[in-house]
Design a protein around this nucleic acid. Structure first.
Lengths: 218, 218
DNA sequence: TAAATAGTGTCTATCAGACAATATGGT
DNA sequence: ACCATATTGTCTGATAGACACTATTTA
């Protein structure tokens, strides 16, 4: 039991929801758009969930997100974006919990260390999102749509490619994000015309076929 | 004083924020993009603020928004969209309050009755947003950007025009939203090509100049 | 030489922007 | 007649999509 002093302010005269943050960390592994999930024991029947946490007193949402990524997935140095507030009063059987969903795009390389942990893994979402607890499936779907919109008109807004990269790398990244293939020559010209990538002057070597120019982001 | 039973669930073991909703109701009056504000006495020095309220127990955000619009501004029958969560712990001097900002575009006609009330008025925001309490200025700026994005590629997503309308009406609406003038002939063709408007077959009459075709939304 | 991949030429259809001509009504 | 406004013709430059050809490497 706790004593709550509700007499001094109108703010505390009525119940307040718990506020959580959940983050969809999206990446591309091979040709699969994927989301990071962490081991989870709070919702019966679901073993994996998006990393999330409750907002602490006086804490910024962005800080709660960083804390949850660090504590649950061992990820640091990111700045996820707000996506949407999921507010169904029944979304969490434990009680009244609003979730401010966040989203981030992270290069696979940056996730490698985190993925060594048994409690962290990637879930491919290219062919639909598997069952996740609460409304995490809806969060992931909205996050995917957000990411697709991001990639619609920019070469690599998520900085997912290691530099330098070839236009083939870039096209395969786009194909994975969008879930469908784009035309090679048109794609090349769109990317070059965007002004967002620059030639390095170097070429690939050692692979099959004609060597390819190497590029970096502007 | 109130007794709070915190022993049974972890959810209530720590403080929770108050959650508010604030709504930027945008409209166009004449050539001015405007936002609806209501009389306000909670923040000293500020007489007008966006309509908002605290989220009640078990309530959906959307329902809280509707309640605040009805109670503070006498507006009903709308479905505002989520915009962004403003979460600075110091944004409200009364305490820890998150605000889930919402936005809606409402035809002036629908606001006329609400505006008869002394506690409700429109504030022109075409030339910058005047001082508003809390972070309402930031909310309005984000809402304006959202509305401009909406109008970027659609004739009248906010359904602000009374039907039927002329292409001149539509262009002046766009000019007001964007804050700059668009070319008459190009604009006409873009709008017609969008397929989002249809000719009625009727013409205007009585004004100066050549009569104009009348259009409705698809 | 064959296979594989990279890069370019070019045609076409579309479209936005701009200018200007024409149409039609009010004053 | 003149002005204000609406509507359309047309030119230009840019662009996306598509197809096909050329280029360069490894096996």
């Amino acid at each position: 039991m706790t004593i709550c002093d509700n007499s001094s302010k109108t703010l505390t005269d009525y119940p307040r929801p718990s506020v959580a943050v959940d983050t969809a960390v999206l990446t591309v592994r091979g040709d699969q758009l994927s989301v990071l999930v962490v081991a989870h024991d709070k919702a019966p029947g679901f073993e994996w969930a998006l990393p999330g946490t409750f907002l602490h007193e006086g804490e910024r949402l962005a800080d709660a997100v960083l804390r949850s990524l660090r504590d649950k997935a061992g990820i640091t140095g990111r700045t996820p974006q707000q996506l949407y507030v999921f507010d169904d009063p029944a979304r969490d059987p434990r009680g009244w919990v609003l979730s401010v969903a966040h989203v981030d795009m992270v290069p696979l390389k940056e996730l490698e260390r985190a993925l060594e942990n048994d409690g962290v893994k990637l879930l491919s979402v290219s062919d639909g999102v598997p069952g996740l607890p609460y409304d995490h499936t809806a969060i992931v779907e909205r996050a995917m749509q957000w990411m697709r919109d991001q990639y619609e008109d920019q070469p690599d807004p998520g900085l997912l490619l290691e530099e330098p990269f070839t236009l083939r790398d870039l096209r395969m990244l786009h194909d994975a994000v969008k879930g469908e293939a784009r035309q090679r020559d048109t794609f090349r010209r769109l990317m070059v015309a965007s002004g967002e990538i620059m030639e390095t002057g170097e070429m690939t070597g050692g692979g099959r076929g004609r060597p390819s120019r190497l590029w970096v982001r502007r």
